[in-house]
Every structure is written in structure tokens, then in C-alpha cells.
Amino acid sequence: MHLATYLGLLHTSLRTLAGAFREVAKGHGEEPDVRSTCEVLANRLDGQVEKLGPIVDRYGEHRESEPERLHAAEFEQTRGGAVGLLRDLQDLYALASFTDITWTVVGQAAQGLRDEELLNVVSSCEKDTARQLAWLKTRMKQSAPQALIAARG
């Protein structure tokens, strides 16, 4: 059964995403809403990792060794300036989309297995992932015109 591979993937990508939200919070401290919201979302991702724990205990997890396959890219370093913020949020969006679809895939397996515990975890975590994506999109839509048209430097 390859579910263990996907659980490993999910586990890693959730941690990567939480780390990336923390990195952006730190790197863009002068944008207070970005800092505080990224911290809130990172803490909630820790909660997702925690919820995944008992599932991993049951199915085990298999970490993929080849990084270019089944592995969310590590978040590098935050960028500066208005356009830099936009790009960092876009990177977060890409990472969050990756975990989003990974939850979907795991959720499909949970349905096939009639695993109610896993289904509940998926359903609560999918809501939170939707929240991450919605916030990132909202914040990027707000920043984009100013960053791309009016910002200097």
C-alpha cells in the first residue's frame, strides 16, 4: 500500500509549509498583518501535523528519498521590498497548494479504506488549508497593483 508514502509526503510538506510561514513572518516583520497572520497559520499547521500523528502511527510513513519527486520544495530565504513580499506570498501559495492537493489525495484513500478517523482529520485540515490559500490570495490581490505599478526601487 502506497498510502504510507503519501503520509510521509504530507508530513514533510506540512512541516515545510509551517517553516515557510514562520520564515515569511520573520522576514516581513514590517508588514504587521503578514507577520501576525503567518504566525497564526504556522501554529495551525503544527496542529495539522499533530492530528496526523495517530494516523502515521497506524499506517507508518515512508519518506521519499528522491527530492525532485514527491517532495515539496524547501522554502529558501525571504526577499525584500514590495515585489519581494509578493513573490514570497506566491511561494507560500505554491507550497500551500501542494499540501492542499496532497490532503485531497490522502482523503480519497481514506474514503477507499472507510477510515473514519482519517476522514475527520482530512476534513478539518482541508478547511484550514482553504483558509491559507484564501488569505494568501486576498493579500496578494491587495498588494499586486501597488507593488507592480507604483513601488520604486
Partner: peptide, 18 residues
């Protein structure tokens, strides 16, 4: 294209020079 800019963000844009 987005909600009208709120005051705190207006001051931030002024701080950043846009």
C-alpha cells in the same frame, strides 16, 4: 480590484515611498 486601502496600509505605502 481589491478592497479600498485601509489607513494603516496607506501609511505603510507612504513609508515605502509608493
Amino acid at each position: 480590484w481589491a478592497p479600498p486601502t485601509h489607513a494603516m496600509q496607506i501609511w505603510r505605502y507612504a513609508e515605502q515611498g509608493s
